[in-house]
Nucleic acid binder design. Structure first.
Lengths: 335, 335
DNA sequence: GCATCGTGTCGAAGCGCTTCGAAGGCGCCC
DNA sequence: GGGCGCCTTCGAAGCGCTTCGACACGATGC
């Protein structure tokens, strides 16, 4: 391995000069700079990450804590991760992958060891067990999601309350009076995942306001469970004409099942999904949907982290405004 | 931040003693060990990662280079990542997430800077541009996937040639003479992704051997493209009774489309998929499938890397034997 | 009783980099 | 022409840890 010292010797300057060329923290004459840069090229020098971290107490790494569950739609998580990794790289940071399952221990490890300069946490629960540690950690953190108590935290999330309201508003506006919600898996509610509960809250509040009947049913991932859930819904409320699908993986099964029951979309039944645009466009019916801006959330989270690391940027809760796009799966309620 | 020196002072021993308690590399009397451990607890000490890396030239980090594409089924990638992260943690390693898109530059960065002790690469192309760097890197690497030339490399992958053969064999054994393959997106073939081409090779070889007609059609992700592909297939080969689905995301659309055309599965048409067991079980028909052992591949890759890092374990290509599970989507060909 | 050995502990020397204070050389002003 | 200040560069002191050689001490062998 080539070291700074070797580059310095090769270029005929001192080690500190090479360091300053690299960091740009002091002015270096054009001539010297060029000489040093040429030496770096010729020797194929790469600064040693460990040494750098030790000397500067900065690792240039951002930790990303990600859920590795399969009861929530994976591609969205993936898309966020992609955006985080790509954006972080653009700012000169690498990304350390932590599993949500490791819980607070991982937070302690990272904050204690200086492995990373900052953390981004996903899959936030309302009363998340990682929050206490986070609040007193020396490193900044950003949550993608919204816990119950956001004091002293920075969060980025879609406004899921507004999202729920938007869905009901759209369907009610089309004349639907009986709306069913195909929700997330029961386990998602049991652990009080913020986005699931908030969406429900928004749905219910708006339904009450517009005097629409709302039936919410959790739904496991898979065709079979979707079929069961749908059967129960039509059993309890045969007059249901509007569906809100919160669980992306239920979208295609639902459409297939409706076809099987002879219910045309959108003539007999309207469907609104909360999902990524990709899913909405690739489904068998082009879906009216509120899009899940996964990529944007990842980007914003990194932007906030970087701002904090650079000294500007205070704690804040940033809720993205949901946008509903009307496509081919929703229309006026039948008489 | 608490340092080693402070722990040493607190416990009334020298710094090196604390270090040896931590690493276990020299014997320490029970009494001293306990005293030191208590001090560590009380002070809440965590070794500094950078300092450790610098002194030992080991970072205890494994880099994982992952594709962030959306033209391949994402959950599988995710499942591999999960397995890698979890297994690595079990061995005391953290995982650094690199994007496939960064290409050779990322490899150079990691190997040059000592950011990671080893690398695991996914989404391997037959003539992958990262390989030359890898072969001369000081750090060990493991590929999940199989390039054309494996000299000097360690690879873990499903035996996709055998996988393809197995699918054809199963269908041919049931009497199907006209088999269609719903393949990956065209881009996947264009960049010569190993697994796609090898599967095809296996399919074709076995079809030739068993004198079965095989039609292969690439297929973009989504319901629409699947419909188009299916239409083309029935157009060109109306007598098709067997389907091999290589592209997991085409599974549910295909089943729906067949239903729509009035082709019963498995009475009129048999379907064999290459996919994770989860997908096979959650589909609207329980699928006969060759399972994609994502989790096992991740685990094995880490096992090999750790073995290499510990000194044992030579270069090798490890191909997992595919297993076909018969479920409800395949049956005897109609007369 | 002396040499021998092993066990447990310490001190010191780095690992490769950043960063601070200082110094050399130059032009410029009064 | 001496002093001042600026620009550029250097040297040295760490950052917190690992690791090697050395040392002290008690146990063992003859």
């Amino acid at each position: 391995m080539v070291t700074l010292a070797e580059v310095a010797r090769h270029a005929g300057v001192s080690a500190s000069t090479v360091s300053y060329v690299l960091s740009g923290k002091r002015s270096i004459s054009a001539g010297t700079r060029e000489r040093v840069e040429r030496s770096i090229q010729e020797l194929g020098y790469h600064p040693n990450a460990g040494a750098r971290a030790l000397a500067s107490s900065k690792s240039n790494v951002i930790a990303l804590m990600m859920p590795l569950r399969t009861d929530m739609y994976v591609p969205v998580m993936m898309e966020i991760a992609v955006a985080v990794a790509t954006t972080a790289r653009g700012h000169g940071y690498d990304v350390l992958l932590l599993t949500r399952e490791e819980g607070p221990a991982a937070v302690r490890r990272v904050t204690g060891s200086g492995l990373a300069d900052a953390m981004i946490l996903m899959d936030v629960e309302l009363d998340d067990d990682r929050l206490p540690l986070l609040r007193e950690a020396p490193q900044p953190a950003v949550l993608i999601g919204l816990p119950a108590d956001t004091a002293g935290l920075t969060c980025v999330d879609l406004d899921f309350v507004a999202t729920g309201a938007l869905c009901v508003e759209h369907l009610a506006g089309l004349g639907h009076r009986d709306i069913a919600v195909i929700g997330e898996a029961p386990a998602v509610y049991e652990r009080h995942t913020g986005f699931a509960e908030r969406t429900l809250e928004g749905l219910r509040a708006k339904a009450r306001e517009l005097d629409v009947r709302l039936l919410h049913r959790p739904c496991e991932v898979g065709y079979g469970p979707t079929a069961t859930t749908l059967a129960r819904i039509f059993d309890e409320r045969p007059g249901t004409t509007g569906f809100v699908v919160q669980n992306e993986s239920a979208v295609e099964p639902l459409l297939g099942l409706l076809r099987l029951r002879g219910r045309a979309v959108p003539e007999d039944v309207s469907v609104v999904a909360v999902c990524s645009d990709q899913v909405a466009l690739q489904a068998s019916v082009r879906l009216t949907s509120v899009s899940l801006p996964a990529e944007e959330m990842g980007r914003r989270a990194v932007a906030r982290i970087v701002a904090k690391l650079e000294g500007h940027g205070a704690d804040a809760v940033e809720l993205l405004t949901p946008k509903l796009t009307v496509r081919a799966s929703s229309g006026p309620a039948p008489d």
